[in-house]
Each structure stands twice: as C-alpha cells, then as structure tokens.
Amino acid sequence: MRTRYVLLAVGVAVLVLLPAYGGNYLVRFGTFLCMYAALALGWNVIGGVTGYPSFATAAFFGAGAYAGALLQVAHTPMPLAWAGAVVFVAAASAVVGIMILRLRGHYFAVGSIALVEVARLVASSWSDLTGGGMGLNVPILPGGPEYAGMVFLYSMFAVAAAAFAAGLWIEHGKLGFALRCIQQNEDAADMVGVNTTACKIAAFVLSAVFAGATGAVYASWTAYLDPSDAFSILLTLKVPVMAMLGGAGTVLGPIVGVVVFQAMEELLWSNFLEMHHAILGLMIVGLIFFLPGGLLSLGAHRRRAPARATSREVPAE
C-alpha cells in the first residue's frame, strides 16, 4: 500500500513541475489527466462506492461548463464564474438527485442517460442563451498560451486534488460507511438506521460538483463550447470506464485507470483517428471480460484471493 502512495506522490510532483520543463504538449496532456482524474474520482462516489450505475457525468460537466461560460461572458471574473458554476451544479444536482435517486438499477441508469440527452437538447434549442449549435465563445485568458497553460493545469490539478481528498474522506468517514452499506443492500441499510435518501443525495451532489467544477475550468480552457462537446455521450461513457479500469469503489483505482487510459489513448489512438470509437469499444469489451475488478484487483488478487472468492458467491442484486 505504501509504495502506491509513494508512486502517487512522484506522479503529482512530475505534474506540478510540468510547466517548468515540459512543452505545451505535455502541459496539455497533464491538464487532461487532471480533468479525467477529477471526473473519475467524482463518478466513483456515486458509481463505485454507492453502486448506483450513473451515466450522468456529462450532464453535470456540461451544466458546469455552460454556467461558468455564461457567467464569464457576462463579465464575471474567471474564479468567481467557476465558483458560481459549482454552486449552480450543486443546486441542480440536488434537485435532480431527489427525483432520480428514487429509481434503482436499470431504471436509474436509463434516467441518468436521459439527463444527458435532455441537457444537450435544451442547450441546443435554447439558442438565445447558449448560442445553440453555433456554440458559445468564452473570453480568452490574457497572458499568452504558456501562462494560460500553467493556470489551467494548476486549476484542474486543484479540482482533482479536492476530488481525491473527498474520496479519502469518504473512504474513511461515516458517509462512506453508509454508502457502502447502501451498495451492499439498500433495504437492510435503511432498516438499521442509515438515512439512505440523505446519503445518496449527498453522494450524488458530491459527484456532480466535481464534474461541474471540471466543466467550468474546461470551458475557460478551450474558450469555446457547443452542446455536443459539453454534453458528450463519449465523456459520459469514458469516465465510468476509466474508473472501472483502475478499480471502482477504491480511491486510487480511478487515478490508475485514468493514467493508463490516457496513456493508451495518446500512444495508440492518435495513430488511428478514424477508429477512435471502435478502439474504445474493443477496450471496454476486454475490460469487462478479462479485468472485471480493474487493474488494482490484480495486485490484491495474490494477497486476498480466498476472501474475494467467497464474496463473489453472494449475488450482486
């Protein structure tokens, strides 16, 4: 366990020092790493720890992106616009959460996908506000590309670090215990006095807030938004896949998954631009068939093989 944290610390040090010695390309890659790490860690709270199959990541990412962008267009300073976006997404996700968290299993999954679709349709058709399919231009951060690259790398890193801290807090805290109870058996958790509704909403809002913050930073970073980019169906699938690739339900798993996924994407996919979706699809098939517990379970397999074997026999539903 300790070596893992040492590796993580080395990785963080490399990331933080990137602007000093890496070129723009590496800084950009590092920013994407932080962005997906924040998203995957956020998803993990509801999808991994609580066990609710949420595919709503892109809905909150896009909501945060549009809220931040619109505030910036209205001349709000960038950090304030980001804060406003986070507040907006927190409020919106609480309202949506109260509604769709009453659903379970398949219905919840379908409801969460529908959220992304509804959000995209609203953003495309409400063109007075969002510019619709024409897109929305966000003021560009002055100071040149290198300065902007550094600002956005550190901003994304801060969001990812906050998501990681939240993940650690959940894993060791009371909320995480309650969420794991819900994951194992929601009715039983309810019976023994866990306030399942409040806990689920807390998990949902927490997970949405990180997606919203990431979206707001992303909007300022790219300086342009359109509905199919902000509410991308690819993003909503990629994020859970990354978390599962590392190991859903653990704090380090999503980070491992993001690093491996992004490294593969840069090395492999950039050579096969036309096959982007197909390679993602094949990777998912491989992941589901051959690596159901994620990469971290490979290390754990040696030490805890007997314990895992027995827990597998308990039906998942």
Partner: peptide
Amino acid sequence: RPVLTTLTLTFGLDMLAYNLMIL
C-alpha cells in the same frame, strides 16, 4: 452481472458498431 457491467458492455459494443458503420 449488475447493470453497470452489462450496460457498459453493450455501450462499448455500440461504439464499435457505430464506428464500423461510419467507416
């Protein structure tokens, strides 16, 4: 297996199908 697994698998297969059909 749970819905997260089955849905992710068919989602992945759909990405593959989509890409092949586009090509």
